[in-house]
Design a protein around this nucleic acid. Structure first.
Lengths: 89, 89
DNA sequence: TATTTATTTAACCAATTAGTTAAATATAAT
DNA sequence: ATTATATTTAACTAATTGGTTAAATAAATA
């Protein structure tokens, strides 16, 4: 839970998720979209993976990243549910 | 946006929001619920205030904190909307 | 006016973060 | 077997985080 919010607290990582919403991408394709270095992107991807917000598949030389939409949606909407009027004991 | 996710990435701060969901509380009442020092809680509250997730009202010696439910809900559900199937351009 | 009370601010510390460049790894192609 | 390519890991740095204790502030009370 903390991991998901931590991951989402960085604008670069949110942007990566936005890219992956549209299609799966290799690490290099993702890195191309940003000004920062590839190792920096690699670390962002690692953090997103840690939070289980993305998955990776090895394909030859490439790593193909994809978003785990359900993790994102379930975590956030699950958290939001805690603050619904209905939930008042 | 980053501020909200950053604020939510800490379990103590999420717990504070959980307390405030039930009722407004003074800084001291909030601090009582945790093991850590009052200044530490004060800083957490400040960060929540920065993210506009809580508001404070001065009342004599006390500061009364309340949750800004709509900010929490609008931010998270607004972000979630970006990842809905319908949003595909 | 002096004291107590609630809270914040200041100064500090260790751990973490987000970036860098350089080196390592692993697969593909010549 | 060598070289090129995609990506990660390592080593480093500056800034931020989450905690501490001590001092400052501000309102209430004696």
């Amino acid at each position: 839970m903390s991991g998901v919010f931590k991951a989402l607290s960085d604008p670069t990582r949110r942007e990566i998720l936005g890219l992956l919403r549209d299609r799966d991408m290799t690490a290099g394709e993702i890195a191309e979209q940003f000004e920062i270095s590839k190792p920096a992107i690699s670390k962002h991807l690692d953090l997103l993976k840690e939070a289980e917000l993305v998955s990776v598949e090895k394909k030859g030389l490439y790593r193909i990243y994809s978003i785990n939409l359900t993790v994102l949606q379930d975590t956030l909407s699950g958290f939001l549910d805690l603050f619904e009027k209905e939930n008042e004991e």
